[in-house]
Amino acid sequence: MDVIELTWWQLALAALMVVALAGCTAAMRLGMSRSLLIAAARTVIQLALIGLVLEALFAAERLLWVALMAFTMLLIAGREVMARQKRRLIGGWAFGIGTVAMFVSSFTVTVLTLTVIIGSEPWYRPQYAIPLLGMMLGNTMTGVALALDRLTDTAWRQRAVIENRLMLGQRWQEAIGDIRREAMRSGLMPMINAMAAAGVVSLPGMMTGQILAGSPPALAVKYQILVMFTITLGTGFGTLAAVAAGSRRLFDGRQRLRLDRLSTPRS
């Protein structure tokens, strides 16, 4: 079975409805219409561009181009992680910790999945590598951003508690232990929820896409399970690394809480 062709004017119908929604929120003065329209426009432009890039990438099938694409995605994700934090570590640490954490976890798990589990030929075959990495990075980014934001914000609000624990002779790991656990929890919760709800509450996007494209549901399910697991691995290890490095950076060599290493939020 082939996919039913979708033309631009059919998309325009859907776009018209988004504009109608923006019109309604503007009429009710809910103040969301502007950001809604900008986000919608970004979707169109970004996806159209990536469509062109992927067409070229798939045609070339060269490791260099795939790697270049992967690193571009990584840097954009790193920037996004930084932008989503209210109080971020200054001096490039927010970007650095987020990016390195995502690189270590997402890239390792993606390469392992491609070579050991899927075994595509060649292993960097862009039809497999790029979508897989994209899903990994997207979710790892969310996890890392949520965890780092929770970590720095809670440390800021509970500075007195952390310092009081230090005064009683606790090590920094113990003094910030509860906050680290909370940060880890908020990083992993979206993925745990997604796994728990998969198929019952929501049909995962990739599986839906595969079924629409004509795959037998049984195969689509297998791929979806694989992707869910790899995403969980990527998010988990990424969050773990980010929380470990981020909390370490909140203390100096004399185990003093150094909140002067955090930026103040622009209100």
Partner: peptide, 20 residues
Amino acid sequence: LPAHEWRARVMLVPAESHWW
């Protein structure tokens, strides 16, 4: 001394205490 060992010996009790 490692900082936590020093603080366990030279114990500061702040004006306002905090509990976790």
